[in-house]
Amino acid sequence: MTERRHNPIDDAALGREALLRAAADGELSAARAAEAGADADGAARIAFERSLRDAVGRSMQGNGAPAELRARIEAALRAEPEALPIPMPEAPRGGSARRAGGVIGWLNANRSLAALLAIAVSLGLFMFWRQGQPTASERIAMDVMAQSLIKEGERFTAFGERFEKQVPYKGRAAAEGAMETVLGEAVPVYDLSSLHYQVAGLAPCSLSWPGQSGQLIYHADEGTGWLTLIMNRVPVAEAASPVPEKWVSVLRSGNEELPPVYLWRKGDVVFYLVAPDEWEGRRALKLFDAPGSLRRFDPDLAWAKSYSGGR
């Protein structure tokens, strides 16, 4: 935002009518405005423009924001995550760029998910080699964990692509039907159109998911566009690596252009969450009652068994 300026506009290039409008709008210096309105015609035009402006003001004044909206915004502001250990990312320039892509955007992002995971694994490998000589069994453990994450990312990506192909989102019923077609089982789909910022009421642990593992897809398609969070949970015994219970591990690419993957554990269940961006991810984590602390995922630490909150 540039500094506010009150200087009169440069009126040298303005024609007679534009000058009169500027005079009526208080954009000219007092002397110049007086000069413009010195003759009867000019004064009448200026008076007309001012009357028109007043009438426009009355016509567009409105009745103010509805009380319900005010209450909703106050609640939403209160629900915003407080400062977390990792600084909140800047809002995308010019609006919600990543969410703007909607499902398509999500898919585009997730096509790169495997690449993201590969980057993370590569980083881990680099750290690994830099720090010392791993034993063969340690190497295998890290590789298994990395492969697990890659597989998870690929599965999400494949699922998203199939879902998108089968059903452009046309409401909850259509989405649920498509989910069953794609996955072969009924999976809850929640339309958050009216609950954009109140996902808490849909806490996944209170839901009965089919089978021991399951996915939830949250869609919101109200105004600001699609919000898709894909979440998966697996029994802790099926997790390929130690997952801490005290914090959420965040897997990001260096340039943060790829979607974040969150990993955490609650009791015997390990949760994965893919969000369109870190902002949405943070909000979802809070609402899902995930641990309040976030740490960058570091495969090397996992490999070294240095998680303080591990099993």
Binding site: P66, L69, R72, E80, E90, A91, S96, E222, G223
Partner: peptide, 17 residues
Amino acid sequence: DEAADLVQETYLRALRS
């Protein structure tokens, strides 16, 4: 309805920054 959503999004984005 769209206006309300736009306002809400505006405030949340403003809060972030």
